[in-house]
Design a protein around this nucleic acid. Structure first.
Lengths: 156, 156
DNA sequence: ATTTTTGATGCAACATTGTAGCATTAGATT
DNA sequence: AATCTAATGCTACAATGTTGCATCAAAAAT
């Protein structure tokens, strides 16, 4: 029985996460949307663990394996990229602005990873014949400003 | 009772592995010597697993944990260095020729890692104030000559 | 609006890679 | 030869992923 409806409420505008997912032919699921939102909201690459913690913080239920698979899918689709930071776990970040690839800084004191937006990864290099480069990873290791300061103070 | 000894046999000339180890104040042990020899004999960085296989091949008994610790010690001493290749496991290579740092190529088809002796890692980069770089890692990912060839053949 | 299809999930079990603790061994020194 | 202690070689454990498979639900078809 169709009751009076005072003008259909406009559907919620599709979030960019939803768009991203269906544009790649994937199903829009809770975990995928949440993971993309978390990555979009971060200024530096996040590990599986950190992403899981972020989802917990927002009370978004999720399975460990499903999260791994969501990340795997994002990387396959080119939506996100994996970074082999200094630690054992992969880190993930959304690929912003097409082909812009930047370097990363890994602080060996606190473990933090930072995007160096101003430092491009070399696009080409002299290679043996027949070799084809698809992407490059450049990671600088050292001490970040905060950790460098602590060290100095400790030495005094 | 000092029996007649027909001239003391000359001690075996110290191998460079033995020299390297004692020069760093470490004890010369079977596993350390063997690991250094394996690394010296390889043209590309090796994983823990590959090193273990090499030792097995030469029937040199070794413990998994001891091997990890030997590698850890070599890195601490600056004799070897760790490389975060594309895969999950670390790879190790002897540091040849002081501070010469080169890039590496990771073939995403066959997993092989190759030293790019002609491609230096950038020694410096514009960083936020207070940041100090200690080392840089540059890894190019793509397809090596052999794998690229296979792909072409498969496409025909 | 239902039904159907199948991509994605969620769970348990397993695999890989690396660490920690500790009694024992053996390399170097006295 | 006796001593000292760095390293070893175990076992157990931790961290990080992966596989298999029954079930669910997002999207498509009816």
């Amino acid at each position: 029985m169709p009751a009076y409806r005072p003008s259909t409420p406009p559907p919620p505008p599709p979030t960019s996460a939803r768009e991203l997912i269906s544009a790649h032919g994937g199903r829009v699921t809770r975990t995928r949307v949440a993971v993309i939102d978390v990555l979009l909201g971060s200024q530096h690459p996040l590990s599986h663990d950190e992403i899981a913690a972020a989802l917990d913080g927002e009370h978004i239920a999720h399975d460990r394996v499903t999260l791994y698979r969501a990340l795997e899918w994002l990387v396959e689709q080119g939506i996100a990229q994996r970074i082999a930071s200094g630690e054992r776990a992969w880190r993930f970040e959304i690929r912003r602005g097409g082909e812009h690839r930047h370097a990363h800084f890994h602080c060996e004191r606190c473990g933090q990873i930072l995007c160096l937006e101003d430092v491009p990864t070399p696009a080409s290099a002299p290679l043996p014949p027949g070799f084809a480069v698809e992407r490059a990873e450049l990671v600088l290791h050292g001490a970040c400003a905060a950790c460098g300061r602590h060290a100095q103070e400790g030495e005094q």
